[in-house]
Amino acid sequence: MALQILIQGFVLSGLYALIAVGFTMIFSVGRVLNLAYGVYIMLGGYIYYAALQGAGLPVFASFILAILAGVTFGLLTYLLLVRRLEDNPIAVEISTLILAVVMQALIVVIFGAAPKTMWPVIRGVLRFEGISVTMNILLATGVSWVVLGGLMAFVRYTHLGRAIRAVSMDRKGAVISGIEPSFISMVTWALSGAFGAIAGVFFATFTQLDSHMWVFPLIISVAVVIVGGIGSIVGSLIAAHIIGFVETITTTMIAAELRGVSTMLLIILVLLIRPKGLFGRAEL
């Protein structure tokens, strides 16, 4: 059982880290909570589904289309909504929540209310010591590590990445040193949309496609931000693992129905004990 928890925990945590990364980015750079983030995940899943299983495009092309959809929608959220309300984080929170419900309705109008099952990105099952893990979820974990590693290298070693990091640490200071924050914001929102879409494809193969699927990833993302604190990739990664493992332990050892409850309790506990997150405010 310990081995099973270990493997499942790592796999689930990898998926959660992937889900949360786009959300955390927006929060650390713009200090706003984008409650429409779950929509990028949903959109990624649905576009991939429509391209692959509807139009019969190859996997790679479907993936690219899903990412493009995420990028477009991320940019639109920023340009049409967030930029107009940027000095008011509460207005951003409310309006992105409304946007999410509007998009949920749009998905039902276009694709119908019935849930859809997605093909796994790759097939096959890995069996090991009586424990079986699908290749698909292993791929998700792998992608998650690659994406997070890439992001970390990006903010460390590229000019643009360092600019993003500068804005996330000190907006005024960044402006003084000649960085255009609205351009940085656009890049961040585009990246967030892309990450959301990638996560969405894997999340949808892991569960299924339906118009409510944006809520759960959003809550996971929120939990990662709250547990991990603002603006640290490593902190988010650790937070995702705490959440993933707590959930795995709860579901395997106590009751499978308590899947969501453990995460909520964790959020509330952390907020009450350490309102700034377990790792405080580290750098991106």
């Binding site: 909570l33 984080p89 509460i90 308590l258 909520m264 959020i267 509330i268 309102p275």
Partner: peptide, 19 residues
């Protein structure tokens, strides 16, 4: 808890009761 986090905690309460 101040500001934006308050909304999230209350959202979490709602989800807990739902589960």
């Amino acid at each position: 808890i101040r500001g934006t986090y308050f909304a999230l905690v209350t959202l979490a309460f709602m989800e807990i009761l739902y589960q």
